[in-house]
């Protein structure tokens, strides 16, 4: 996993509440057995006029110019600014893979759905919950200011605006360590293999019916 420390990134707004993972990456792309190849199809139904299918060349597909991801001023964005309950619905990690491959490293919203939130960390993306009023203001500033960037500092847990205003955010200490260092969860857990075996042995005694 790529470590996440600081990010000075262009911000793209997706000003809708309850953006679900079906919208982030529609189901036809979930048929892939690979972990890559999703970036071009991120928000497929909102980004293109035609119907997308896996393997399509997206270079010449007709784009919906009203959608922010298609607007020239937001090209190269690495921070996505969203609304309440971002990433709700299906557990598909493909949604995070699509965002990552598109170039997004950080999402800021008033709230995130639980499964999407934890999936994000697994691919080295940082979801940042900020107060609704703060997100409202940031959305207004982004819209009013072409080239609007934010500076995200994970170690300091801060988001800094171009005017120097700083917002702090909460992040789980364990997830923060993993992101900062780019650690692989599985490797960490296997350090505790003896404890897992001991738990398992006891549990086989107490509740043998679970081991079928």
């Amino acid at each position: 996993m790529t470590p996440f420390t600081q990010l000075d990134g262009l911000v793209v707004p997706v000003d809708r509440a309850n953006v679900d993972t079906d919208a982030i990456i529609p189901k036809q792309f979930l048929k892939s057995i690979k972990r890559t190849g999703f970036g071009d199809f991120l928000f497929d139904e909102w980004r293109y006029h035609d119907h997308g299918e896996p393997g399509m060349d997206c270079a010449n597909r007709p784009r919906r110019t009203e959608f922010t991801l298609n607007q020239p001023r937001y090209q190269g964005a690495t921070i996505l600014l969203g609304r309440e309950n971002f990433g709700c619905g299906s557990s598909r990690e493909h949604a995070v893979w699509a965002l990552e491959e598109y170039g997004i490293r950080c999402m800021i919203a008033p709230s995130f759905a639980d499964i999407f939130f934890s999936n994000s960390f697994k691919s080295g993306l940082l979801p940042i919950p900020l107060a609704t009023e703060t997100v409202d203001r940031l959305l207004r500033e982004v819209e009013a200011t072409p080239g609007y960037r934010l500076l995200v500092d994970l170690a300091a847990q801060t988001v800094k605006t171009p005017s120097g205003e700083t917002f702090s955010f909460d992040v789980d200490p364990f997830r923060k360590e993993c992101l900062l260092n780019g650690w692989d969860d599985i490797g960490l857990t296997l350090h505790h293999a003896e404890e897992i075996r001991a738990y398992e042995a006891q549990r086989r005694q107490d509740a043998p019916w679970l081991f079928v």
Partner: peptide
């Protein structure tokens, strides 16, 4: 869970 957690 997501696919990373499936592997985990």
């Amino acid at each position: 869970i997501g696919t990373s957690e499936v592997e985990h």
